[in-house]
Design a protein around this nucleic acid. Structure first.
Ligand SMILES: [Mn+2]
Ligand SMILES: [Mn+2]
Ligand SMILES: [Zn+2]
Ligand SMILES: [Zn+2]
Lengths: 126, 126
DNA sequence: GTTAATAATAGTAATCATTACTATTTAAAT
DNA sequence: ATTTAAATAGTAATGATTACTATTATTAAC
């Protein structure tokens, strides 16, 4: 794989945010540095970076989100503000349990918990 | 909500399979009974049935799948044969932990484990 | 430094899943 | 039977992503 300033930029944009951005968000950010960068270039490179293990992809409903954090982890998604937060909820235990109960060989575990984050909660009393 | 034979058929198709079908699969199945049923009718009714709590929707990568099983449960997805199997992996414990650690109010928990099912595994010895 | 080979790009067209629109049909209350 | 509005079929539109293609740019060899 040969160097390109577009790919370098895209990689940096993903690695500098915790927001689990979409391709379109990355596209708009990238345009500020390379004004004529194309959306196809964004997608092509995000997929390439993912295949090389540089970044992660996961799907939030029907749209892809990109994650600098390639270590196995989980997500809390707030239905009020849309924020997606990294958490660590599952352990090697779960993988063992899946093997013991179902003889299923785990490759990847994804836990997504949706609900309301503390910022957007209405407390009964103050 | 008024009766319609289209909705009745769609509901029955979803409730008679464990395959977590896509809208398109349901469409083809439905056409065998009502040959001119439209794909829009499939989607409209699947969404309606979901809003009424009759069926569940979840996303497998970027495509919607429909589930007769509306009780909270998890899925094993085999990367070899594509089969998606119902399992029960999470308990109320997890919800409590999310609250204690993050003050996050859980609405829904989704665990998807991908890997290889026992049918498609190569055992080292017989 | 120049040349040659080809990976990567910008711009655009195409695809796939899903939703929106609209004239017509149909369930069901009166 | 008449009336009212929910539901439908058929089609158009949308949004996310991938495919295509002529041009540009990186890198290795000379
Ligand atoms: Mn993350
Ligand atoms: Mn299920
Ligand atoms: Zn929030
Ligand atoms: Zn399998």
């Amino acid at each position: 794989m040969r160097f390109s300033k577009q790919r370098e930029l895209i990689k940096n944009i993903v690695q500098e945010t915790n927001s689990h951005p979409t391709a379109y968000w990355i596209f708009n950010k990238a345009k500020k540095k390379i004004s004529n960068i194309s959306l196809g270039t964004i997608y092509r490179n995000l997929n390439k970076l993912n295949k090389d293990g540089i970044i992660d992809i996961f799907y939030d409903n029907n749209i892809a989100r990109y994650d600098w954090n390639t270590l196995s982890h989980d997500h809390l998604k707030c239905n009020k503000c849309g924020k997606i937060i990294d958490v660590k909820m599952h352990t090697k235990e779960l993988q063992k349990e899946v093997w013991n109960q179902y003889k299923f060989e785990t490759e990847n575990i994804e836990i997504t918990i949706s609900g309301t984050c503390k910022k957007h909660m209405n407390f009964k009393e103050k």
